[in-house]
């Protein structure tokens, strides 16, 4: 099982190593970590810390994509949750209540998406586009167009505090990842989600409650986005409805794709997606440290996608195969027969 997982995430580990090495080249001090006031500082810690929102989003996105869906609204949900939490705390509630309110907002958003997809049968990309557009508007209404700042040490601690020397966001995403991983792999959820993603009709006819599963994955995606939104708000001590989570859905999708998860649904690995999130953050960091203009970021990300796709060539072949099928040429199996050993189909 562990061996299978390792084999599954080997390409991502290699790329992460490469990205970190890149950081080292542009900034030789990259790996140095120092302890100050009982807290660890260093670029490596930064990568883990700054990567928290993407990592959280990637967890939910992995599950959604495993069902052959996609959630474009997570960035907007981050903004909503941040605004709700900020509103709650500025109107005098305890920070835990504010966190709860933010999460509740995320849950409602997730359920809404799940309802559109699973009950009304709207295509996920369209269904979640609705909230992607409208959600940011809702957040702006909540903050009345301004940045809603707060000065609550509890809430801002979620974004900028530290526990046992490590930044709080790191604890949060690692904790959520472990919980999600255990939940899907220690129960039958993982397999059932994969079954729905591969062939929903067959799964439904086998008695799988595909509707409930679909709603559940969008709910999880909403909750993860809400948590990410609260962390971001806590970090800047304010809710910025215009910029919080902007374009983050794309990073989350990218993390999942870098993680080698097929957008066609089915087999998934949360661990690999998380590595994807870290790879993205490392690249961001390298560009920042090298002093190159930030605009390069986008180009480099594009190159990264290409590299990843080539590394996972059986998938490229499959995409080519599907492309051919959809452009009308008769479909054919991959060639050469990609000798994918079953172990590689392992999961985390």
């Amino acid at each position: 099982m562990i061996k299978a997982t390792l084999r599954r995430i080997a390409p991502q580990l290699a790329i992460l190593a490469l990205a970190l090495a890149l950081n080292f080249i542009v900034f030789p001090d990259f790996f140095s970590i120092r302890m100050q006031n009982g807290r660890l500082y260093g670029n490596l810690v930064d990568v883990l810390n700054r990567g928290a929102p993407t990592a959280l989003l990637a967890i939910g996105m992995t599950l959604v994509i495993a069902t052959r869906g996609i959630d474009l609204s997570v960035g907007a949900v981050m903004a909503i949750a941040g605004a709700v939490a900020a509103l709650a705390v500025t109107s005098g509630h305890h920070w835990t209540a504010a966190l709860g309110a933010g999460l509740l907002a995320g849950a409602v958003c997730g359920l809404w998406n799940g309802f559109l997809v699973a009950v009304l049968g709207i295509q996920p990309i369209v269904a979640t586009l609705v909230l992607m557009v409208a959600g940011r508007g809702v957040a702006q209404l909540l903050t009345e167009g301004a940045i809603l700042t707060f000065n609550d040490p509890g809430l801002s601690g979620l974004g900028s505090g530290a526990i046992l020397a490590l930044p709080t966001p790191v604890w949060i995403w690692v904790g959520v990842a472990l919980a999600a991983g255990l939940l899907v792999r220690r129960t039958a959820l993982g397999m059932l989600i994969e079954a729905v993603g591969v062939n929903e009709r067959s799964a439904r006819l086998a008695g799988v409650d595909s509707r409930a599963l679909l709603i559940a994955v969008y709910l999880v995606a909403g909750l993860c986005a809400a948590l990410a939104g609260v962390i971001v708000a806590g970090d800047i001590k304010g809710a910025d409805a215009n910029n919080a989570g902007l374009w983050m859905e794309l990073d989350a999708i990218l993390a999942v794709v870098i993680g080698g998860n097929s957008l066609l649904g089915g087999r998934f690995s949360i661990a690999a997606s998380l590595l994807g999130a870290l790879i993205i953050q490392s690249v961001n960091s390298a560009i920042l440290l090298s002093g190159m203009p930030v605009e390069f970021n986008l180009v480099i990300k594009a190159l990264l996608i290409i590299a990843i796709l080539v590394i996972q060539s059986p998938k490229v072949k499959r995409a080519v195969y599907l492309l051919r099928a959809s452009t009308g040429q008769p479909a054919r199996e991959t060639r050469p027969p990609a000798p994918r050993r079953p172990a590689e189909e392992g999961r985390t």
Binding site: M191, L192, V198, R201, V208, R267, E345
Partner: peptide
């Protein structure tokens, strides 16, 4: 309506029972 193509034969066989 029947097979879940990418899942293993083992998973396909236990799918209904698991569901």
């Amino acid at each position: 309506d029947g097979i879940v193509g990418d899942l293993s034969v083992r998973e396909n066989i236990v799918l209904a029972l698991q569901a």
